[in-house]
């Protein structure tokens, strides 16, 4: 459970504030907002890449910023908006690096680590590409690879920064459906920033809307239509 307590998101200046909003595991949230309103900044604040401008974020009642830094990867996983691939790094090696928070000082993969990696790759239907180099894959497969890497991390909170930005319509749809299923089946709290408001309605996702008029984040538990969200963010 993530709770925002008078949280001011922003690095040098406060971009927007979040008052008493709580997010739960087993659910997927769509983070909507105009360009430059601070969606990525919010996600990065949740992995502590960027400090908060004010207020606090609680994870299961504990202050996020008081947690030991090495505990964080076991709680929060982050998928960046674009992964360009790395030469000579196979998809399987790439995904299994997501196990790093669980492996010993040498990063040695145990049998269970390898099993987890293969299981997640099967779930996302990318097992066929496991021995291909990540810079030689298509954008879609690579993006799924990045998500697989975050999933094998086995953190209860999964953050995705516009994962659908470089995907075609079919892959977009499939990815969002898969993510929603994962949120329910693996009891994760998934927050996914996107401009695809249609998907939010279609998949009946709760929506976090950054209102640029009031500089506030508003939680819409079940938005009825696109207009409702657009009305808030514009």
């Amino acid at each position: 459970m993530i709770c925002f307590k008078n949280t001011h998101v922003g690095y040098k200046t406060s971009l927007f504030e979040i008052n008493d909003v709580c997010l739960y595991t087993g659910k997927m949230y769509l983070l909507a907002g105009k360009n430059g309103t601070g969606k990525t900044t919010l996600l990065k604040s949740l992995v502590r890449s960027i400090p908060l401008h004010g207020g606090r974020i609680e994870l299961n009642g504990n202050d996020l910023h008081q947690l030991e830094k090495r505990m964080l990867p076991q709680l929060v996983a982050f998928v960046e908006s674009r992964f360009n691939g790395i030469p000579f790094l196979t998809l399987k090696d790439y995904v299994s690096l997501g196990r790093s928070p669980h492996t010993n000082a040498f990063g040695r993969l145990k049998e269970s680590d390898t099993q987890k990696t293969l299981e997640v790759m099967r779930l996302l239907n990318i097992s066929d590409y496991q021995d291909k180099f990540t810079d030689e894959l298509s954008d879609g497969i690579r993006q799924l690879g990045a998500i697989a890497r975050a999933l094998v991390q086995e953190a209860p909170i999964l953050l995705l920064d516009e994962p659908t930005a470089f995907l075609d319509f079919e892959n977009k749809d499939l990815l969002m459906k898969t993510l929603k299923e994962i949120a329910v089946s693996q009891n994760k709290c998934i927050i996914c920033s996107s401009h695809d408001l249609d998907l939010s309605i279609e998949l009946a996702l709760s929506t976090l809307a950054v209102s640029s008029k009031e500089n506030k984040l508003v939680l819409l538990e079940s938005p009825q239509n696109k207009q409702e969200i657009i009305g808030l963010i514009c």
Binding site: V47, S49, L72, E80, L97, S100, P101
Partner: peptide, 10 residues
């Protein structure tokens, strides 16, 4: 993976 991703993995 790049410094940012590595840090997020601990």
């Amino acid at each position: 993976l790049g410094e940012d991703s590595a840090v997020m993995l601990g």
